[in-house]
């Protein structure tokens, strides 16, 4: 349904000296994937790997440097104002922090009515009905209408955020670390709510997270990002046997009850996105590094039709 093709996003840094070379931060470095209707696609990676930037480009909160986001074959970054407004009805984003995603000066009712006013949907009574229906859908009720965000708990806030995102009946929702700021018990509630809403409204999710447990539980397919690139992509069962050394290390770090599992510990820090290593970006930390990794960028290998990996080990 949505195709992301060779997405790049560079941020130019101001020069330190007048004659010094211009540096840029490569936040997203050639990302491609396809979202299929009704699926939940997980995007995992450490902070700074470019996963949130990718999400914000898809909803066009920021413009990409190059590459395309295609919806039904049309490039959304080339939309004019009117087309963009229609696009914004179809795609929504839910942010990480439920404390920052609600305007503290507005009531729940106002927050839920806002999207309907922006898109001029229905008269006041129809809007009211839709707002109340939506509140019931996310497990709240009419008593919340007149409340302000500071009167709500974190979980309740996130329910309001989700309601505000879904009230336009979008086809597609980007959930940017949607549950990371919540307690574990509340996380589970919100995830189950999202699953139920997905079924009811036939939604497609792009689920951005650093929490592998959550992603494995919640997603159909997963892409692992490292320094702005997708290093491995596949279905959840594919990634039970990860192929890329980075994914292996990442997945072995999930705490399990089994004490005998060996954990691959990576050495070093993630290199800065303004100085991405030549060749394979992971070669500075890879336990299986070869000479060619330092010069040659690995290409994408299709292990199966679903499972792709970017590593010289699979040449």
């Amino acid at each position: 349904m949505i195709e992301v093709k060779n997405l790049y996003k560079y941020y130019h840094m101001p020069r330190k000296k007048f004659f010094s070379k211009e540096t840029s931060i490569k936040a997203v470095n050639g990302v491609s994937f396809t979202l299929r209707k009704g699926e939940t696609f997980g995007l995992v990676g450490e902070s700074g790997s470019g996963k949130s930037t990718t999400g914000e480009i898809i909803v066009q909160l920021i413009k990409q440097t190059s590459g395309q986001v295609l919806y039904k074959g049309k490039d959304v970054s080339k939309f004019n104002a009117l087309q963009l407004k229609v696009w914004r009805r179809k795609v929504q984003i839910v942010f990480q922090d439920p404390y920052a995603s609600l305007n503290p000066k507005k009531t729940v009712q106002w927050i839920l009515r806002e999207p309907l006013i922006i898109h001029k949907i229905g008269n006041r009574r129809e809007q009211d009905k839709r707002i109340i229906d939506m509140l019931h859908d996310v497990g709240l009720d009419e008593s919340f209408l007149k409340r302000y965000p500071h009167e709500l708990s974190g979980g309740q806030r996130q329910r309001v955020v989700i309601a505000a995102a879904l009230i336009l009946h979008p086809e597609f929702v980007v959930i940017d670390e949607g549950v990371s700021a919540l307690d574990v018990s509340v996380q589970a509630q919100i995830l189950n709510l999202l699953k139920a809403l997905q079924k009811k409204y036939r939604l497609t999710y792009l689920f951005i997270s650093h929490d592998l447990n959550v992603v494995q539980y919640f997603c159909d397919r997963i892409a692992v990002m490292y320094l702005g690139e997708i290093v491995e992509m596949g279905t959840v069962s594919d990634l039970d046997e990860p192929k890329h050394p980075y994914t292996k290390a990442l997945f072995s770090s999930i705490p399990t009850r089994d004490v005998n599992t060996s954990e691959t510990v990576l050495s070093g820090e993630v290199p800065s996105a303004s100085a991405i290593p030549e060749g394979c970006p992971f070669h500075t930390r890879c336990p299986f590094v070869q000479e060619r990794c330092k010069h040659e960028k690995p290409v994408k290998h299709e292990l199966t039709t679903e499972h792709t990996v970017r590593c010289h080990l699979y040449d």
Partner: peptide, 23 residues
């Protein structure tokens, strides 16, 4: 984030300035 979210919902600059930022 609420300003970003409002933008993602299609709000224009005037709406964001007077309804979200000013209050």
């Amino acid at each position: 984030d609420y300003v970003k979210a409002s933008k993602a919902k299609g709000a224009g600059s005037i709406h964001i300035i007077f309804k979200h930022i000013l209050p």
